[in-house]
Computed example of a mutant assay.
Amino acid sequence: MGHVTIASTGSNYAHNISSGVHSLVADEPPRLGGQDAGMAPFDLYLSALAACTAITLRMYAEKKGWELGQFHAELSSSRDEAGKLLVHRVLSATGALSGAQWERLLDVATRTPVTLVMREGAIITSEHRNLEG
């Protein structure tokens, strides 16, 4: 499904992340001791959900013959009183979509692959390997 590697840059909390030929930098903001050289981990988390939402809705609209036009999503996160993460998506598009079409797209958004994994959780394992050099 996916494979990424991450390596320190030698610059405080900044790390290079790569997947195949693609790369980006992750860091923390200055208020958390970083240098803001890239997105923070929770921003990357929201980015994964945003990307999956945008791509899935574009695929669905194309399949239905609906013109989305320019698609835009804004995601934000917060925590409730119990500490549970809350994520809110605001979706918009320049295409002339009806209320019924938007209702369907919002329904599809609840079932994108990344949405489902984030809702159900994942089994995360770790192991140790020595680095050479």
Rank of each mutant, 00 (worst) to 15 (best):
M59N: 04
Y60E: 14
A61M: 07
K63A: 08
K63V: 01
K63Q: 09
K64P: 10
K64C: 05
W66K: 09
Q70V: 04
Q70L: 05
F71A: 00
F71R: 03
F71N: 00
H72W: 03
E74L: 06
E74S: 11
L75Y: 15
S76E: 03
S76L: 00
S76I: 01
S78A: 08
D80Y: 14
D80M: 05
D80K: 11
A82Y: 06
G83L: 02
G83H: 04
K84F: 15
L86D: 08
L86M: 12
L86Q: 14
L86G: 04
H88V: 12
R89I: 08
V90Q: 14
V90A: 15
L91Q: 08
L91C: 12
S92W: 00
S92L: 07
A93E: 10
A93I: 04
T94M: 06
T94N: 09
T94S: 14
G95A: 11
G95N: 07
G95I: 03
A96F: 06
L97V: 06
L97P: 06
S98T: 12
G99Q: 05
A100Y: 11
Q101C: 04
Q101E: 03
Q101I: 05
W102E: 01
W102I: 01
E103I: 05
R104M: 03
R104Y: 05
R104H: 06
L105I: 05
L105E: 02
L105G: 01
L105T: 04
L105N: 02
L106C: 12
L106E: 09
L106D: 06
D107L: 15
D107G: 14
D107F: 14
A109H: 04
T110V: 10
T110N: 13
T110W: 12
T112Y: 05
P113F: 03
P113E: 14
V114E: 00
V114K: 01
T115D: 10
L116R: 11
M118L: 13
E120W: 02
A122C: 10
I123S: 09
I123A: 10
T125H: 10
E127K: 13
E127L: 08
E127M: 08
R129D: 02
N130S: 04
